[in-house]
Design a protein around this nucleic acid. Structure first.
Lengths: 248, 248
DNA sequence: CGCGAGTTTGAAATTCTTCAAGATCGGTGG
DNA sequence: CCACCGATCTTGAAGAATTTCAAACTCGCG
């Protein structure tokens, strides 16, 4: 196969590690040329399978690599000395894990698989080396980190300024968007996390999450039975977020 | 002055932009060699003064540079369509602003000076170029971004799992640590932000913040009059954070 | 079939917010 | 120099949202 090196890759052009992978627009190779992507294969040496409920890494583990999720779901959480746990994110296919570790060379949170999963292991020293050589990789990596910062600010907004039902609506809309971006159904999906984990993420107790689910169902916005959710009225869900609440 | 290029710089060795600056251990040049730091001066071309209450940048502004605070204080905030505002951080001397802009090439939050301030303008394209050449710069920049992510996770913990007084205690301890790192008094300082801004950051109403201040004072943990705060019992403040609360 | 983890729902308790009224501060102009 | 002004802060009391406690329900699975 012959292509000009300057043409951005598409899924069909790839052969190796990153190639069998249909996550291009979501993952690190995005925006890179074919020749550049070929060099990425040095990077993604290993893959690693993580069974449900197992840790990919723990807070305190020495930092050596970042991870791109190929298959599955993870949660990250931080734990206070007294045992209180805060879920800081739910990560799905094509998303990156481990960026927190760069700052101190040790991970600062736990990453736990919510279902049997598989990740690409990206040795961090190699990533730095290669991204000094490949402009596109460097830039994309910076974007990934920056995107995480922007996402975190969104969560702060959610936690600091929204009420229970607004938080859950925002959460559902967000999931829907991420499924859409991956070619899955926007309005029907299976939650991989428990009410307790959702609650931790949203700064609510699990009972409050459950009540909000029930309320949305009563109002015909969603249909929910346990972990199976169908969004019946996405515009209305969006309105909940934007609607100025009385409180706060 | 003659030095080996491999010796890490200290404040006394510098002559130029980054040099007059006593923020080395906090800012981008940290860990770099003398020769490397000299090259940084291409980077920090401009400085910019921002008067109190003025914007350094606004959400939506095209992203061109990141900023290192030389003098002063800033807040960053995100604003929802209905006008609700969430303060996402308070930044002081030696801290970096603008990292949110990399992901979409537009800023996603507002940065507003809390007092008359001055920043170093770091052109982003030059930063990327230079950090492909200078390993130490690349690494330090990544650390700065990662540190922001870790900080954000801490704020999520605060917002999602802590009660009002715990949040304020954590806030005060954090300020104290940051002042200490800059050689200022650890236990006596002047708040640059209003109760309302603190409240927004902590996910509380300004009255709740005020009540928490008063309560700490009653208990002899702090002394506070308006914006002047003295921490009288830092260990006790720390205990508040770690103490398992009944709720949540 | 029954167990256990996870979920739902109700009612009481608690925290935080809202509303309202003063108090304090720094700065300004007479 | 001092009174006054607006902005900010404090405090009280009532109200609302969320949590806590408790009990029952559902579902997958051994």
């Amino acid at each position: 196969m012959h292509m000009k090196a300057t043409v951005p890759i598409t899924a069909a052009d790839l052969k190796s590690a990153c190639s069998q992978c249909n996550l291009l627009e979501l993952c690190l190779p995005f925006g890179m040329t074919e020749t550049e992507v070929n060099r990425l294969d040095e990077l993604v040496g290993t893959r690693r399978k993580i069974k449900r409920q197992q840790h990919l890494y723990r807070a305190g583990d020495p930092f050596e690599a970042i991870y791109a999720i190929r298959i599955g779901w993870f949660k990250t959480d931080v734990v206070l000395e007294d045992g209180r746990e805060q879920v800081t994110g739910f990560q799905m296919t094509g998303e990156m894990l481990g960026l927190d570790g760069i700052s101190t060379e040790a991970h600062s949170c736990n990453a736990i698989a919510l279902e049997d999963s598989e990740v690409c292991v990206i040795a961090y020293d190699k990533l730095e080396e290669l991204s000094r050589q490949i402009e596109g990789l460097q830039h994309q990596f910076h974007k990934v980190m920056s995107r995480e910062i922007v996402r975190d600010h969104g969560v702060m907004m959610l936690l600091g300024s929204m009420r229970a039902e607004e938080r859950l609506a925002a959460f559902l809309i967000n999931l829907s968007q991420r499924f859409t971006a991956r070619g899955f159904a926007a309005s029907e999906f299976h939650l991989r996390m428990t009410r307790d984990e959702i609650g931790s993420y949203l700064g609510l107790k699990l009972e409050t999450v459950s009540r909000a689910f029930s309320r949305f169902q009563e109002e015909g916005l969603i249909s929910v039975q346990q972990k199976h959710v169908r969004l019946l009225d996405i515009p209305a869900l969006r309105k909940i977020i934007q609607h100025p609440s009385v409180m706060r």
